[in-house]
Amino acid sequence: MVVVAVPMTVKAFLLPYLEQLAKVCHVTVVCAQEDGALREVLPAGVDFRPVDIRRAISPLADARALTGLIGLMRAEKFSLVHSVTPKAGLLSMLAALVSETPIRLHMFTGQVWATKRGVPRWVLKKLDALIALCATHVLADSRSQMAYLLSEKVVCSGKINVLGNGSISGVDLQRFRPDPELRRRVRSRLGYGDDDVLALFVGRLNRDKGVLDLVQAFLLASAEQGNLALLVVGPDEEGLRPVIEAMATGNSRLHLLGGTSTPEEYMAAADVFCLPSYREGFGSVIIEAAACGVPAIASAIYGLTDAVEDGKSGCLHPVGDVMRMARLLQQFAREPGLRTSMGAYARQRAMADFASGTVVAAQVEFITGLLGGALGGRVGAQE
């Protein structure tokens, strides 16, 4: 049984894993039913059970979801429950413990409390610790995140692991790859030629992603580097679009492009990828861009230090350091050789360490190892 909060997590990260896992056992996916499209994209052999798990705190809805999970687990008698994302982890690990599910696995993909202070940080951190306490096994999607969780005493060292080189799903090297023709088409559509240098951000627009820092750094850098442009791609979660537009008044080289289902198009067109986050579990978009041959400028925080090899596949900067970010943007804009050499190294590293097939194989091997010989029925369904 694989539990997440929303279908987007399944669609964005888990389909290759579910497809391979379904080849060795039956799989049930549980999440909120936000749309009717999830059943259509699930691989053969994967069942779906809707439970209204909400990302935001909602006591009544959370109680109903917990009750629903307990009922489902008791009825189906799963022997393994695998959760991803914080709310799904909390509810499913509690439900699995109450239901006496023998193998309870949670994967941490980042900590929402990492950037908070005071009581909110303490409460959210304790909830993550409760997830780890209820689980029998814990994974993190990066080694630096595992080190952070250990240092914060959220989980004990004998209980947590990282598979391979990390990442929740790796990168699809067929989808994310250098494509000169696609690069030309996208740049032409946006009004840019070969001499323009396109910096790219792909992700949710919120303050924790550091997008406002990036805009400020770009405005400083582009004032001196006229060939530099910035593409900001992603859904606006915190109403930042008017703020960004006000900041960039008079600058025609900053483009807010909204959400997309084809980030690989913009990555193929980009020259440098930017992720100035304040918190990340790993930073999957960085290795996707790397697979397209695009180096990164990213903040030196846990998670991103695994995704970027500083000085080789990109450059790291202190979190929130707008001036350092601006100088790096200028450097990449001025030095095509730097972009080429780091982009080539980034692609080789993505292919060697983070190919989706390699990451998924490690995950399936880990799961089947936990289950041992009990592979009949659904995922871990008891005989």
Rank of each mutant, 00 (worst) to 15 (best):
V2D: 10
V6F: 14
M8W: 14
T9W: 13
V10Q: 11
F13A: 11
P16D: 13
V24Q: 15
T28K: 07
V30K: 08
E34W: 05
G36E: 14
L42T: 13
P43V: 09
V46T: 13
R49V: 15
P50H: 04
V51T: 08
R54F: 04
A56G: 12
D62V: 08
A63P: 04
A63G: 10
G68S: 06
I70C: 05
L72A: 02
F78A: 09
V84C: 09
P86R: 09
G89Y: 02
L94Q: 04
L97C: 05
E100M: 01
T101Q: 02
R104T: 04
G110H: 05
V112R: 09
V119M: 14
R121S: 09
D128G: 02
L130T: 08
L130D: 03
T136I: 06
L139I: 03
Q145A: 08
A147L: 12
V154D: 06
K159Q: 13
K159I: 00
I160C: 03
G170Y: 07
D179V: 14
R183G: 11
G193M: 10
D195Q: 15
V197R: 01
L198R: 03
L200N: 07
V202T: 13
L214E: 01
A229R: 12
L230Y: 00
D236Y: 11
E238D: 15
L240E: 12
I244F: 04
A248L: 04
N251E: 15
S252T: 15
L254R: 02
L254Y: 03
H255V: 05
S261M: 07
E264D: 10
Y266D: 05
Y266A: 01
M267F: 00
A269W: 00
P276Y: 01
V285F: 01
E288N: 04
A291T: 00
G293F: 02
V294E: 03
S299C: 02
T305Q: 12
D306M: 01
E309P: 00
D310S: 05
S313N: 05
L316N: 02
G320C: 05
Q331A: 05
F332Y: 15
E335S: 10
S341P: 03
A355N: 03
I367C: 07
T368Y: 08
G372E: 07
G372Y: 01
A374H: 15
